[in-house]
Design a protein around this nucleic acid. Structure first.
Lengths: 230, 230
DNA sequence: ACATTTGTATGTTTTTTAACATATTTTTAT
DNA sequence: ATAAAAATATGTTAAAAAACATACAAATGT
C-alpha cells in the first residue's frame, strides 16, 4: 500500500503535489488500494462513484456503450492518473465504464476526505479545474476528428495518440501498449474488420510494421500527415 | 451596464449566486459589457482569452473548424451563461470560435479579478468544477451520438436538444431559436443538403412542421423515439 | 427596381464504410 | 493434448451518406 501511495501522492506529475504533509496524511488515511486483473471491469456506466480512483499501475480503457451496444473508447488512462474523476466532480453516476487492459493497482480516495481538503486548498481546486478544462478540450477535438476524418485519418490519429499517451519501447519504435484490433477499432470509430484491413494497408505501405499486437511505427511523419489530411 | 450585470451576477441560476456582496462588487468593478450584432464573431479559434465572457442577452454558437474548413458546432449558448470558459480555466488559447446568432450583450470579467476571488471562495471553485465536469459528460455523449447514430437519429436528437436548450414559443410547439439549415447541419454532423432533405422528410411524416426557419414540433414522442433508435 | 448573393430544395451519381461471409491462426479452458 | 472459443485476416455485397448538379426563392446591396 505504501509504495502505491507514494506513487500517486508524491509523484511530481500528480495534482496532489500542491498538498502539504498533513493533507497528504489525511488522504492516505481515507484511501484503500485494490488489484485488478487484465479484462476486469473497474466500474460500469450507471454505477455510483464512491471515491476518486487513482491508477497506480497498469493501463485502463474508459468507454461508452452506444447504438446497439457498440463501444466507443473515450479515454485511455495510464499511471499516475485518475479514473472516473468526471463523475465524482459532476456529482453524477458514471457515464462511461472502465476496464483494465493490463493487470492494475488502483487506490480509491473517499469522496468526503477529498472534498474536505478541496474546500481549504485552493491550489488543488485550481489543479482540478485546469485538468477538467483541458480534458474538455480534448473531448471536443475528438468529436470533430471522429466525425470528420476518414478511416485512414482516424486510424493514423489513434496510432499517434497511443504513441503519445504510452510512449515507445526501448527499440524506439514499438508503441508501448498492446490492444486488440477490436479495441483499436473502438478507439477509432470503425468496425474491427476495417481496423484490421487499414492496419494491413499501412503495413504494406511501410508506415508501420505489425507483429501480433505489437505495432512498430516506421514512418511517424507519414502517419502524422495521414492524420492531418483526414 | 447595471441591468446586464444584475442579469449575470444576481441570477439564481448563476454560479455567482454563492458570492457575497463584496465579492460581487469586486467582479463588477473589473468587468466590461459589449454589444454584438447577429453574425458577429466574438472570438476565434487560436485567440487568447482575456477574461470570462458572460452572455447576458442573445444566443451564440460555439464551433470548431475541421477537415477542409467544415464546421462542427460543439455548444449552443444562451443567457445567462458563459462563453469560452473552458479556455480561461485550462489556461489555453481558444480551441473553438464563438459567433452571435442573434444580437447579443456580453460582459467580460477580467481573469485576474476572477481568479483572485476563486482563490478564496471554495464554493465558487466547486461550482466551476461541477460545471466543467458536467459539460465534459455532455461532450463525451455527443462524441458517441454523432459518430454512431444515423442521419435521422442525429437530426432528431439535435431538434430535441434545441428545444431543451432554448425552449418553445408561446404556441408551445415552435422551437425558440432560428437557425439556418447550414447551422442545423453543422450541429448534427451532416451536409446542408442532407439536413434540408431530412427535415423535409420529417415534415412529410408530420413529426415537425416547417415555415421558413420556424420549426414546429408536432410529435415530440416520435422525435425522441427516432433519436433513441439512432 | 434590378442584379447579385445567399439560402433552400431535390434529383442523380459516386464514395465510403458497414455488414456479411468464410478462412485461418491464436488463445484459453478442460 | 485437444477441443472450443476468441481473435485475426480478407474478399464480397449492401447501405449510408457525401458529392455534385441544377433549379428556384428570398434576402441584400446598389
Amino acid at each position: 500500500m505504501n509504495v502505491e501511495w507514494h506513487n500517486i501522492i508524491d509523484n511530481q506529475m500528480s495534482v496532489f503535489s500542491v498538498l502539504n504533509t498533513d493533507e497528504k496524511e489525511q488522504l492516505k488515511r481515507n484511501s484503500t488500494c485494490t488489484q485488478y486483473k487484465k479484462n476486469d471491469i473497474i466500474y460500469k456506466e450507471g454505477d455510483k462513484p464512491s471515491g476518486l480512483i487513482c491508477l497506480s499501475k497498469g493501463k485502463v480503457k474508459i468507454f461508452k456503450e452506444g447504438v446497439g451496444g457498440r463501444e466507443q473508447i473515450v479515454r485511455m488512462a495510464k499511471p499516475v492518473g485518475f479514473i472516473g474523476y468526471r463523475a465524482i466532480f459532476a456529482e453524477q453516476n458514471y457515464l462511461a465504464s472502465a476496464e483494465a487492459i493490463e493487470d492494475c493497482v488502483i487506490c480509491t480516495i473517499e469522496k468526503e476526505a477529498l472534498f474536505k481538503i478541496l474546500k481549504t486548498n485552493s491550489d488543488l481546486a485550481f489543479s482540478i479545474i485546469r485538468s477538467l478544462a483541458f480534458e474538455l478540450g480534448l473531448s471536443n477535438n475528438r468529436t470533430v476528428t471522429l466525425t470528420q476524418k476518414h478511416i485512414r485519418g482516424r486510424l493514423a490519429e489513434s496510432l499517434v495518440f497511443l504513441k503519445e499517451t504510452y510512449g515507445l519501447e526501448e527499440d524506439d519504435s514499438t508503441i508501448k501498449v498492446y490492444l486488440s484490433r477490436e479495441d483499436i477499432a473502438n478507439l477509432s470509430n470503425m468496425t474491427t474488420s476495417n481496423a484490421i484491413r487499414t492496419l494491413s494497408t499501412f503495413a504494406s505501405e511501410k508506415i508501420i510494421a505489425l507483429d501480433g499486437r505489437k505495432i512498430k511505427i516506421q514512418d511517424l511523419k507519414g502517419l502524422e500527415r495521414i492524420s492531418e489530411l483526414g
